[in-house]
Write a protein that binds this DNA or RNA. Sequence first.
DNA 1: GCGTCTATATTTAGTAG
DNA 2: TCTACTAAATATAGACG
Lengths: 197, 197
Amino acid sequence: MIRKKVKLAYITNGSSRKATYKKRNKGLMKKMSELSTLCGIDACVIMYSPYKSQPEVWPSPKGVQQVLSKFKMIPKMEQRNNMVNQESFLSQRTIKVVEQLKKHCKDNREKEMTQVMFNNICNKWVIHGLNFGDINDLNLLLDEKMSNIDKRMDAFAMTSLYTQEASSSLSSSMVALPPMTMVMPKAMPRTYHNHFP
Amino acid sequence: MIRKKVKLAYITNGSSRKATYKKRNKGLMKKMSELSTLCGIDACVIMYSPYKSQPEVWPSPKGVQQVLSKFKMIPKMEQRNNMVNQESFLSQRTIKVVEQLKKHCKDNREKEMTQVMFNNICNKWVIHGLNFGDINDLNLLLDEKMSNIDKRMDAFAMTSLYTQEASSSLSSSMVALPPMTMVMPKAMPRTYHNHFP
DNA sequence: GCGTCTATATTTAGTAG
DNA sequence: TCTACTAAATATAGACG
């Protein structure tokens, strides 16, 4: 009955993993409320486990929505910027690259927006009026595209931070890329900045 | 040097509150990563404190976005439904009321959507093309409206669950309400279900 | 205000019922 | 599986520099 020191790795045994999850999840939620009451802070947790169909949240679905609405208002750009700064990753060399990246990212976003505008969802809006399902569809579509771009940006940022080759090829402002998976409307010119290796 | 047992209440002394916050925040984040690695759980935390301008997040801004994109896909209705069921709040009497509430909520949402469609934002989209700022504006507007509705629904749900009066007046399907704060387009008929006392 | 220390409070792994 | 238990491990309040 001598208790081992926890080995910090995935617990392969299913039942003890579940037991651990339940205990620690409970402990975590408790700590969360303690911190919240002791220091009066505004926070939320969302946890997906295979043991429940719905995510487990703290403090409540409504509370999560409130914190989330605050969080969503911060543009992604600022988040990225802040994250990068905080971790002190930017050398003098890479600052320029990141600036370019931002500019191209912004341009790409605007172009994406315009494209989405010309997709049939938009036509539906105009002709039949905006409904709930369509808003949802658009949201999902945008999220997907954004996350694609983010993935590509991150992949690129990693490369450019650690290899000379990528940085120098970026400075020529255009890098060959596999085509984006987006459906292109026929009428729209395609002038994305492709700078992800 | 005898350590007191923690009194679970807001710490009024500013500096010790900050100290506690820092310690406990650190502990929480640690517990979070432990749980995540031990049980392979997909989760995120967002914490707003007065000590940092940006929220402190776990596991990372990107990780949070990923969890959030999963979370957003669950319609609010389902969240509410699930929450209510889980907490076993529904008596036989209130089930009908909640069903009505859902239906009216759905109707109201559709009407809101249609209204937004007729606001000048929409005209701008059609005439000038969709841009980033407009998407943002629309998002914020929708969020605000949604959260208004949610607040009202919660206020109502509380009342109907605990007072007979509210339940019985709801069963007549219409309750007098202060007017909603939404700007109404002149051309749109206004037929919201107003059932929040 | 911040980092370090240490005695105590709290959490939890493993076990037993 | 779940609950209860308990000793080991961990977190942290308060003190100090």
